[in-house]
Design a protein around this nucleic acid. Structure first.
Length: 471
RNA sequence: GGCCCGGUGGGUGAAUGGCUCAGCCAGCGGACUGCAAAUCCGUUCAUGCGGGUUCGAUUCCCGCCCGGGCCUCCA
């Protein structure tokens, strides 16, 4: 049996995972910013984090998983200036920032659940942890890592020699041509705000008092403050999308290591690559991003998206298209068919089957332990589903694999199996049945063709004729 | 401009310094079916281009081209 190995962004290597505290893994995942819906690409980090959590659990570890919810303060520009997205979304919707945040938080939590993600032990909101953020900024100030300008309190990145290390930044190259002028007084382009002063004359819904004046926290601070609060000054794993490496996580590390005097602050950094939405990024209605409900509206159950996700490795970009969703739906449906059949039988596999069972079980979990290699695990899964195993063996293995897959193999029935009811269609189906009984196949086929033309598919089974709407 | 991923069959997507380069979907053939559908079985098709290292490269190195992403610049 192999050991759990995870790819660490800091060292750019796969490393054997050993929790700092034996038997207990502490994980922090960068969560959503809740001023807009999370599109299906935004969901990938949570699917990935879920695979990580399930892998840790499968190792027999206790897992404390913390996910933050950013309900304040991101600016429209990635510079330190610009309009605040949360405030803007609120203004546009005629609601308060808190209402907007609550709405999108709920939507995100619901999507997570529908995708089969295990709940986090802690969901923490930035606005509930202003005091912790101020405290960390104060620590940094006391230790001489900050400077104050008209705009706010800034972190002086030149005081942190390791600043460029994590993301392997070329600061000299970046600085050479950079204009520092976005925010007057910034000493280095990569310096970032710890606390921003409320702009004079602007009515903000989200501002707080601080030792430096009324304002709001810089947007990297929340993750440092909250992760440390819930997981301690030195914890195991921090996850997020690759887009966070260069700026957000680099800044988190700078703040945290300087404020806490630790290194490394986090043992393993893990980042998921992006979903390539290609031309599907925007659906017809302009500006509307593709969300999970859009897939559902097209007839794809949320777990089909999970199945789709499992077909690629989390560190590879994955190409999204509706054709691929349809293909995933097909595979998922077949897989569930096998699972449903297998879990209906009792008994134990024959002793003679034991070797084959343990071999494929090992292949599955070895793939999981090798940096969460889902495609390889799926390969083993299909060897079980399609292979010569007895139903008892299939049941045992599928239920075992389900602990990591989260595909509903123990509970779900194939999508589209539930028989709909529609008086007109039911009548046509009945008429066709009568025609077939009378061996009037011309009439029977005509009815089938007519239904097919309006997107209704007919399936004759031992239990009778079923129909369903085609995707 | 800097940095980071990647270019494998019709689609997607694993793996690998040599042994028949996974799996899923599609296609094709077969079973089943009145015919289909669904399901099952079988099966065709692939390593972007040019150099280098090597006995041997899809795999390692360099260059090029192409796609995606992050940051910056410009506007």
């Amino acid at each position: 049996m192999s050991a759990l190995v995870l790819f660490d962004t800091r060292t750019r290597r796969k490393q054997r995972f050993e929790p700092i505290e034996p038997g207990h893994a502490r994980v922090y995942s960068c969560g959503p910013t809740v001023y807009a819906p999370q599109h299906i690409g935004n969901l990938r980090p949570y699917l990935f984090a879920d695979l990580l959590k399930r892998a840790l659990l499968a190792e027999g570890l206790r897992v404390t998983h913390v996910i933050n919810i950013t309900d304040v303060g991101h600016l429209t520009s990635d510079a330190d200036a610009g309009e605040d997205k949360m405030e803007r979304a609120a203004a546009q919707a005629g609601k308060t920032a808190a209402e907007i945040a609550a709405f999108y938080t709920e939507q995100w939590l619901r999507d997570r659940r529908r995708l089969g993600c295990l709940e986090a032990e802690v969901y923490c909101k930035a606005t509930d942890h202003i005091a912790e953020q101020i405290e960390m900024a104060q620590r940094l100030e006391e230790r001489g890592y900050t400077y104050r300008i008209e705009d706010g309190l800034y972190f002086d990145t030149s005081k942190f020699p390791r600043y460029a290390e994590f993301a392997r930044l070329d600061l000299a190259g970046q600085e050479a041509g950079a204009r520092i002028g976005d925010v007057a007084g910034k000493r280095h382009p990569q310096d970032f705000a710890l606390w921003k002063f409320a702009p004079p004359g602007v009515e903000r819904q989200q501002e707080w008092d601080s030792p430096w004046g009324r304002g709001f926290p810089g947007w990297h601070l929340e993750c440092s403050a909250m992760s440390v609060k819930y997981l301690g000054a030195h914890f195991d794993i921090h996850t997020g999308g690759v887009d966070h490496i260069a700026v957000h996580h680099t800044n988190e590390i700078a703040q945290s290591e300087c404020a806490l005097g630790v290194h490394p602050w986090v043992e393993v950094w893990m980042h998921n690559e992006f979903l390539d939405l290609g031309g599907e990024k925007l659906s017809k209605s302009k500006g509307h991003t593709l969300v999970l409900d859009d897939l559902v509206a097209r007839g794809f159950e949320p777990l089909v998206y999970r199945y789709f996700f499992l077909q690629a490795h989390y560190r590879q970009q994955q190409a999204f298209s509706f054709d691929e969703m349809a293909s995933a739906a097909k595979g998922y449906r077949r897989l569930l068919g096998v699972a449903v059949a297998a879990r209906g039988v009792g008994g134990e596999p024959d002793a003679g089957e034991r070797d084959a069972i343990e071999k494929v079980r090992g292949e599955f979990w070895d793939a999981v332990r090798d940096d969460l290699n889902a495609p390889r695990a799926m390969e083993a899964l299909w060897r079980v589903a399609r292979g010569d195993f007895s139903d008892a063996a299939k049941r045992e293995l599928l239920l075992d694999f389900e602990r990591w897959l989260g595909l509903g193999l123990a509970t779900e029935t194939p999508p589209g199996d539930a028989q709909e009811s529609d008086p007109r269609i039911d009548a046509l189906v009945a008429e066709r049945r009568a025609a077939r009984a009378a061996r009037d196949f011309a009439r029977a086929d005509a009815i089938r063709d007519a239904l097919k033309a309006e997107g209704i598919e007919i399936e004759d089974t031992k239990e009778g004729t079923k129909w369903r709407r085609a995707r």
